[in-house]
């Protein structure tokens, strides 16, 4: 028996909406840091995916269970030992990479457990952030509403930074979408976007 699914429409953040478009119907999806399960619930209704989420926060785990999203309570920093190699079609890490201690480790783990990965993160190359630093202060914005001393964002990067690391880790980028608030940015995204979403093919499993 599968749990009943609410048919109420779910409104997604722009990056999540784009992620949803990229996910193949009927595929197996792992959402790392799945929050209250919004994306997985939407993917289940709109893409008929078989999903699982990882979340550390008690209240969010409860929210997932309440909406019938399969959730596993775990700290992502501990890696993805619960999962076998290539157990999923797509693994998603939305707006979490920048707050992880072991950035390379989680990207390698994503490559291990899935065929395809999707990552979204705030773009630190946004021109206003540069202006803020030129003016002598760390940037604070809607995307990153924290002061330097209380921010969870410890590993901020630009689009090119991420692309370089992806290359080093054998992740082949196949699509990119960039946003400023809810507006998609086509021209000069490295300077003009506040949020980037990448889709990449994972390195094949090492046997």
């Amino acid at each position: 028996m599968t749990l009943a699914h609410s048919s109420a429409p779910i409104t997604l953040r722009p990056d999540l909406a784009r992620i949803e478009q990229w996910v193949k119907p009927g595929s197996r999806v792992l959402d790392l840091g799945c929050g209250d399960g919004t994306l997985l619930a939407s993917l289940r209704v709109n893409r008929q995916v078989i999903g699982a989420g990882i979340e550390i926060d008690d209240a969010r785990v409860i929210a997932c269970v309440k909406r019938g999203v399969n959730v596993l309570q775990q700290n992502l920093e501990e890696g993805l030992a619960l999962f076998d190699d290539k157990q999923f079609d797509t693994v998603v890490l939305s707006q979490t990479l920048q707050s992880m201690h072991r950035t390379e480790h989680i990207l390698r783990e994503m490559s291990r457990v899935a065929h395809e990965g999707i990552v979204s993160f705030p773009n630190f190359g946004y021109w206003r952030y540069g202006m803020s630093i030129l003016a002598g202060r760390m940037p604070v914005s809607g995307q990153m509403p924290y002061q330097w001393y209380n921010t969870p964002n410890i590993h901020l990067c630009t689009l090119r930074d991420f692309e370089a690391l992806a290359g080093e880790l054998g992740m082949r980028i196949v699509e990119r979408a960039t946003f400023n608030e809810s507006r998609e940015i086509g021209v000069l995204p490295g300077w003009r976007s506040t949020l980037a979403v990448y889709r990449f093919a994972c390195a094949p499993a090492v046997s």
Partner: peptide, 21 residues
Amino acid sequence: SREMVRALLKNGRPVSYAEID
């Protein structure tokens, strides 16, 4: 419990897991 979760995931069973501190 994680060992059981892992085995169930491997089998493709729908599983949720809460680890209460």
